[in-house]
Every structure is written in structure tokens, then in C-alpha cells.
């Protein structure tokens, strides 16, 4: 555990809490892609199956359970509790275009051809692209509420900090997880354009982020 990794995990936690609290307090999930949230719940579910097979640390176990619980709570709020506010007309990204290549790739490129390893690889690849329905939705509507952009900012920050964590681990413990690093870098690239808009628009006091 290093400071980048810890800060990355905290950013990830903050992002998920921001989204959950926003939906709960506004009693609305307008502007939120339910599809992205289902994909994230799928990411956590397939990655954290090792909860049943290995014990890494109390921190690891607790964080995994918290992420799982919060991602399912988010999906529940969007599709059950506040489903009449769900903006399905603008959440039209075709997730099968993500799932099919990701499933194929996880069978081709993995560390071991075992069910748990293939599912772990699937979760890593899927996480890299899971935000695309949300970014697609923002592009389609041309705007995002500032709280949604704060959520995306912390999610992107988490990815950037994980890259710093991998650089640190590479130099201090010669750790290099090729699958995680390559897809992590790809994932971070998706946030770059958004980061630019966030800094130039949202942080300068706009209530909404309107796309140029």
C-alpha cells in the first residue's frame, strides 16, 4: 500500500458516494446513465469473486464489500426507487458493443485460463470502457449537472492515481500487472477530454457543464 494507491481508492469511494448522495437527496437520477452503473456493478461482481477464495487484508475485504454494496444501491435507486426520473431516452448507448469484445478479449488475453481469472480479466477490461454510456449521454444531451461532473472528476482522478501507484510499485517492488496497467491507461485516456472541460467550465463557476 502506498499513498497513491490509498488516495486512488479514496477518490473512487468519494466518486461513488457523491453519485449515491446526489440521487438520494435530489430524488432523481436525471442525467445519470443507468447502463454505466449496471456495468460498474458487473465489474465489481466479477472482480471481487475472490472474496470467497483468498483473504488479502481487512482493508481489502471491507473496501470490496463497500464498493459492491454501493454499486448495487446505485443501480437500485436508478431502476427501482426513482425509475420514473430515469432518462432512458438519452441512455441509448449499445452496451453489447462493449460486452462482446470485452468478453472475447478476456478469453484471449489472461493470466490463467480459469473461470476466476477470466472473470477478473473481464472486469478489468470492462471497467476501462464502462463509463462510455455516461460520456455518450452527456455528448447526446450536450450538458451535465455540475454534481455529475464532480462524480466523473473523482472517477478520473482515481484512475490517474492508480497509474502513479503502478509507477511507484514498479520502481519499489518490481510489480507490473500488464493487463491492469494497459487497460488502466486506456481508461484514463477516456477522461482526458472531460478533465479539460471540467477545469475550463465547471471550476469557473458554471452550474452546468455545457458542451461547446
Amino acid at each position: 500500500m502506498n499513498v497513491f494507491r490509498l488516495a486512488g481508492d479514496v477518490s473512487h469511494l468519494v466518486a461513488i458516494i457523491i453519485l449515491l448522495v446526489k440521487i438520494w437527496r435530489s430524488k432523481s437520477c436525471a442525467g445519470i446513465s443507468g447502463k454505466s452503473q449496471v456495468l460498474f456493478a458487473l465489474v465489481f461482481t466479477t472482480r471481487y469473486l475472490d472474496l470467497f477464495t483468498v483473504f488479502i487484508s481487512a482493508y481489502n475485504t471491507i473496501m470490496k464489500v463497500v464498493f459492491l454494496a454501493m454499486s448495487y444501491a446505485t443501480v437500485y435507486l436508478i431502476y427501482m426507487r426513482f425509475r420514473n426520473m430515469y432518462d432512458s431516452e438519452n441512455d441509448t448507448f449499445r452496451v453489447e458493443f462493449l460486452l462482446v469484445p470485452v468478453i472475447g478479449l478476456s478469453f484471449l488475453e489472461n493470466y490463467a485460463f480459469t473461470p476466476l481469472e477470466i472473470l477478473w480479466t473481464f472486469s478489468i477490461f470492462l471497467e476501462a470502457v464502462a463509463i462510455m454510456p455516461q460520456l455518450f449521454m452527456i455528448t447526446k444531451t450536450g450538458e451535465a449537472e455540475s454534481i455529475t461532473t464532480h462524480y466523473l472528476f473523482f472517477l478520473g482522478l482515481y484512475r490517474a492515481l492508480y497509474i502513479a501507484n503502478w509507477v511507484w510499485r514498479y520502481h519499489t517492488e518490481e510489480f507490473f500487472d500488464q493487463i491492469a496497467v494497459v487497460s488502466g491507461v486506456v481508461q484514463t485516456i477516456f477522461y482526458c477530454d472531460f478533465f479539460y472541460l471540467y477545469v475550463t467550465r465547471v471550476l469557473r463557476g458554471k452550474a452546468k457543464m455545457i458542451l461547446p
Binding site: R5, H12, S57, M63, F67, E117, F176, D177
Partner: peptide, 10 residues
């Protein structure tokens, strides 16, 4: 070198 399970990151 390839990383080996268990995966200790979240």
C-alpha cells in the same frame, strides 16, 4: 513478468 493471482488491488 506477468502479475500472478491473488490480485491485491481494488
Amino acid at each position: 513478468e506477468k502479475g500472478e493471482p491473488p490480485h491485491d488491488e481494488l
